[in-house]
Write a protein that binds this DNA or RNA. Structure first.
Lengths: 208, 208
DNA sequence: CTCCGCATTATTGGCGCCAATATTGGCGCC
DNA sequence: GGCGCCAATATTGGCGCCAATAATGCGGAG
């Protein structure tokens, strides 16, 4: 199902985000061809918007382009996923040294960790995905190195499919929730090394 | 002066690269407006090509876009430059752990270090810029983590102006050349920590 | 029955026109 | 003489048409 086909929003990045979302949510399966005619109907926008969005998604390598043939959703590539995950580990561990955590920020992080825990216990896949994402994005946003924060968030959007679908066991999900809380506490205690270790383990989990 | 306005090359990334090059070479000064009409004449391509290129350069933040006004070359931002440099330090130090250096690769690196040294002694600014770039790109390419290598190279293209122009003293340049050789030797000796230290110092220099 | 080739159809992607909007320059008013 | 408003001009950016090219389906030959 198409998400939020706002037929008259400020089209531009909106379409790109919508397509990216549908790819990561699995609505547009890996390998499928993205016909411009379909897309412009699905998202209720013009062909020009679609082309811009596809071009940008190509640079993000969420889709690939073959001239005179079209665009298709990138196939999952285990090697690439592993490499990107390792880059996330590198960047997020480095980010810890730039974190500026106010008490309010820590309170907000606790709230977000709580939300993810709730979604883990009784929530849809989408809720889990989004609350998890929010936690990490907020944490990232605490970095005084704005470029580093932006890069990390950006990188999240570079992973093709293998979406929320197959988050493994319930036990694993709840462990993730617990890890979120542990990270908050490490941050609150100003224990950088511990936070780094927690982050590394957390990210290196098969999915998420 | 416009560089290589190949009026009938495969326009696409070519135009983007050409504009990026002119920005980094200073031909398109920071703050100047990039009128589409001028650009399509300068690079001998169509308006569509120009628009795609400008859109991509906007995502790279080499230019900025104001709707109904146009695109202009990003102004140098010291904070941003410092942050990006710090990210380079993080990534290139991390890259050291992924390096796979064959004897041939080390020989090639020596050759490139030599070329930069020659350009340092008696070469144009452009030659220095390019040979320096080649050294770093080649070194980066030795990483077994292809995504990491791609990210590092990508990041080099995100720095706006303050180009080769003002490479400071001749002494500094020759020190850079010496550092290149030292890095090669550290790599050849398999001394990761030393290579990391050299890289960090090298990158943290005011320019380059 | 299968395979090859051709005509038809579907799709991409370039190009240019034009409306909307900002900028410039001139003219009159204070 | 300076300031501000308004007309003329310049520029952006959307939209749709159409040529080039690839995919598809049909029919005939082996």
């Amino acid at each position: 199902m198409a998400r939020a086909a706002k037929s008259s929003g400020q089209t531009g990045e909106a379409v790109e985000a919508a397509i990216a979302g549908d790819i990561q949510a699995g609505a547009l399966p890996p390998g499928s061809w993205l016909k411009q005619i379909d897309l412009e109907r699905r998202y209720g926008c013009t062909r020009t918007d679609i082309r811009r969005a596809l071009d940008r998604l190509t640079t993000r390598r969420l889709v690939q382009h073959i001239p005179e043939r079209g665009y298709y959703v990138c196939l999952p590539d285990d090697r690439r996923k592993a490499e990107l995950r390792e880059i996330r580990v590198i960047l997020e561990m480095a980010m810890v040294d730039f974190l500026a955590a106010t008490p309010e920020a820590i309170a907000e992080l606790r709230r977000l960790a709580e939300r993810f825990a709730e979604a883990s216990a009784a929530g849809t896949h989408l809720e889990r995905y989004e609350s998890n994402r929010e936690f990490h994005v907020y944490l990232t946003g605490l970095s005084r190195n704005r470029e580093l924060a932006a890069l990390i968030v950006d990188l999240r959007g570079h992973l093709p499919a293998t979406p929320v679908m197959q988050w493994h066991s319930q036990a694993r999900i709840e462990q993730s929730a617990a890890e979120h809380f542990a990270m908050v506490e490490a941050l609150a205690a100003g224990d950088g090394p511990r936070l780094k270790a927690l982050l590394a383990d957390h990210i290196r989990q098969p999915t998420r």
